[in-house]
């Protein structure tokens, strides 16, 4: 399964770099960031090229940064049963996707698992720490 990280500016490359630092070099993960001066048409063309280089047969999970942002809006056209999209990617979500894709039987199953696990990734760490210290 291919994972495509999409978003604004350097964020996708940054996420890819952070993921690589933690998990090591991974195959079939690409990142395409929308450049400041880039038109939506030019951006979707670069995403399509990245997809092509991964092979047409592959299932793809797109991880986009913001629902309703331009990367999300343009990738909507590329979605199919074999190519699903999750919005709101953060590093825990990306790590989960990379580490779970081997076990998932389909991209749909992977997407569901990643979204489910991702819900708990934003926490009030101070409050958790305070609660621990209070005990």
């Amino acid at each position: 399964m291919v994972i495509g990280i999409l978003g604004h500016g350097d964020l996708p490359d940054g996420l890819l770099s952070a993921m690589t630092l933690i998990c090591g070099e991974q195959e079939k993960v690409f990142a395409v960031g929308l450049r400041p001066e880039e038109s939506p048409e030019a951006y979707v063309e670069r995403v399509t090229q990245a997809l092509r280089s991964c092979g047409e047969e592959e299932e793809v999970l797109f991880l986009v940064d913001v629902k309703g942002g331009t990367p999300c809006n343009v990738v909507a056209r590329l979605i199919s049963p074999k190519r699903r999209c999750i919005a709101g990617v953060n590093l825990p979500v990306l790590l989960q996707a990379v580490m779970s894709r081997g076990e998932a039987r389909s991209v749909k199953e992977l997407a569901a698992k990643v979204v489910d696990d991702g819900q708990g990734s934003i926490v009030d760490f101070s409050a958790e720490l305070e609660a621990m210290m209070g005990n």
């Binding site: 400041p36 001066e37 880039e38 038109s39 939506p40 048409e41 030019a42």
Partner: peptide, 16 residues
Amino acid sequence: GVGSKPGRKPFYRNIS
């Protein structure tokens, strides 16, 4: 916002 593409040149900040 107007993105760059062939035929357009940067005009003001990110607007081509």
